[in-house]
Simulated assay, not measured.
Amino acid sequence: MTGPESEGPQVRRAVCPGSFDPITNGHLDIISRASRLYDEVYVAVMINKSKKGLFEIDERIDLIRQVTAEYGNVRVEAFHGLLVDFCKQREIPAIVKGLRAVSDFDYELQMAQMNNGLSGVETLFVPTNPTYSFLSSSLVKEVATWGGDVSHLVPPLVLEALGERLRQG
């Protein structure tokens, strides 16, 4: 047999990109939903050398791997440069992004159109669970820095790492 039938079933891949500094329950909601829709989901942890994160890239990757291990089909990798290049290298045709509010849509639509124009990669927008519609890593860090309770906003493992990091100063 020749042709597509002989190649076996096609693996459906998607990527959830972000800085994940730290990963929140809102991020996990989007990743878990993507993991039910796709055979393989890559979590692409963005490296931004001009910005100092609270957690180093390797720490973020480790935390994400631990909190997504139960899904079984999530891979976590760092990337820098264009997301579409990351997608091309791994044959990923879809980017999955969570939208919290209308304000997210304007920016994300421009990015989606640019990514599609550059490489044909599609972007799927997933509405965020209303429980997490206000949530961002920046907000979690700010509240935690001032001693606020963020235990309902991040997985327990991340809460522990966040507390340790903030105690270190």
Rank of each mutant, 00 (worst) to 15 (best):
Lys97Asp: 09
Phe86Trp: 04
Ser6Thr: 13
Val15Cys: 13
Asp29Asn: 14
Gly98Gln: 09
Ser19His: 03
Leu54Lys: 06
Leu54Gln: 07
Asp104Tyr: 03
Ala44Asp: 11
Phe55Ile: 10
Tyr71Gln: 12
Ser32Lys: 11
Thr2Phe: 15
Ser119Gly: 12
Val43Ser: 08
Leu109Arg: 07
Asn73Lys: 10
Glu7Gly: 15
Val76Cys: 04
Met46Cys: 15
Asn73Ala: 01
Gly120Leu: 03
Leu54Tyr: 06
Gly169Arg: 14
Ile64Asn: 09
Ala101Pro: 01
Gln113Trp: 07
Ser35Asn: 07
Asn116Thr: 07
Pro93Ile: 02
Phe55Trp: 14
Pro4Phe: 12
Ser32Met: 07
Met1Trp: 12
Val150Tyr: 06
Arg12Gly: 00
Thr24Gly: 12
Ser136Thr: 15
His27Trp: 14
Val43His: 06
Leu109Ile: 13
Ile47Met: 08
Asp85Lys: 02
Lys97Ala: 07
Arg33Tyr: 05
Lys88Leu: 05
Gly148Asn: 06
Gly72Trp: 00
Pro17Asn: 02
Phe134Gly: 14
Leu109Ala: 09
Ser32Asn: 11
Gly18Tyr: 13
Val76Asn: 01
Arg13Cys: 08
Phe86Tyr: 06
Lys52Glu: 15
His152Glu: 14
Gly148Arg: 05
Asp85Gln: 02
Tyr42Ile: 07
Arg13Ser: 06
Met111Ile: 14
Val102Asn: 01
Ala78Tyr: 01
Gly98Asp: 10
Pro155Asp: 13
Glu108Ser: 02
Arg167Ala: 15
Tyr132Gly: 08
Glu56Gln: 13
Arg90Ile: 00
Ile57Ala: 01
Thr24Lys: 07
Gly169Cys: 04
Gly148Ile: 06
Gly147Arg: 10
Leu135Pro: 05
Asp104His: 02
Arg13Ala: 02
Ala14Pro: 06
Ser119Ala: 14
Lys88Ala: 12
Glu56Gly: 04
Gly98Ile: 12
Glu164Met: 12
Leu139Tyr: 03
